[in-house]
Amino acid sequence: MNGFKIIVLAKQVPDTRNVGKDAMKEDGTVNRAALPAIFNPEDLNALEQALRIKEAHPGSTLTILTMGPGRAADIIREALFRGADDGFLLTDRAFAGSDTLATSYALAKAIEKIGRPDLIVCGRQAIDGDTAQVGPQVAEKLGFPQITYAEEVNIEGDVVRVKRRLERGIEIVKASLPLLITVNGSAPECRPRNARMVMRYKKATTLTERQSANEDYLRMYTSHPYLNIEEIGFKDLDANIDDCGLAGSPTKVKKIENVVFQAKESMVMPATDHHLDALMKELIINHTLG
């Protein structure tokens, strides 16, 4: 066996977990500038699983693929620093406004362009939408079977064994390659950056990022091709424009609201002994407690 060709799908997301008070603007829209852009947490769990498979099967290659704006190249570098071999940034205005289905269409077309792998690994879901749809949708478009909620993956010969974490227990399933696996947040955390890899890849950039660089810089990429993060646009794909972006998205956002709760008339009290004593007494008497 000469190892496996592995593609990891990852997304750069706004860090919605630590939303501060300035995350929403006065007009009720999201203040993206107030939210740091991070590597989607469960995609890091996925990267770790992929790195383990790569290490267990010498000769394997690990490619990272992300769709997003130019700055999403950051997470490709993050993956290179942790042991990915190369990365592709799928970026084009034609993909703007994609829902999960249009996203999975573009990703599936990009995977066909890169070359169909033995294994696709991605996080269960991204924290900005929590839909958990893109992984299975990509699998369907490529005709790959899927295993979701993976916690452990082992490949022996041509048999893949996966431990899945379900709502009420665990399941161990068996499958063969090719396969798409979505990895759960309960799987092992991703390893930290490797200092040697950081040295090697810290100047890895996309063509767009290099456009303002000086000539010495440009020459360096000719002699060090691994520092090039390849950008893929719509024109590079064998894709139908009507299936991309907003046009290719069956779901439309009809309305976005900043929610105003139906306010009740609250009884506000300080946390004094006197007040808490009285409150507990009242709750017991009216049978809310006890």
Binding site: D99, T100, L101, S104, G129, D130, T131, A132, Q133, V134, G135, P136, Q137, V138, A139, E140, K141, Q146, T148, Y149, L166, E167, S249, P250, T251
Partner: peptide
């Protein structure tokens, strides 16, 4: 559920129909 969220996107992808989660 773990089943619906595994099945739904697969079906929507094949049928090109929109799916809204949760």
């Amino acid at each position: 559920t773990t089943i619906g969220r595994d099945l739904g996107p697969r079906v929507s992808s094949a049928l090109h129909s929109g799916l809204t989660a949760d």
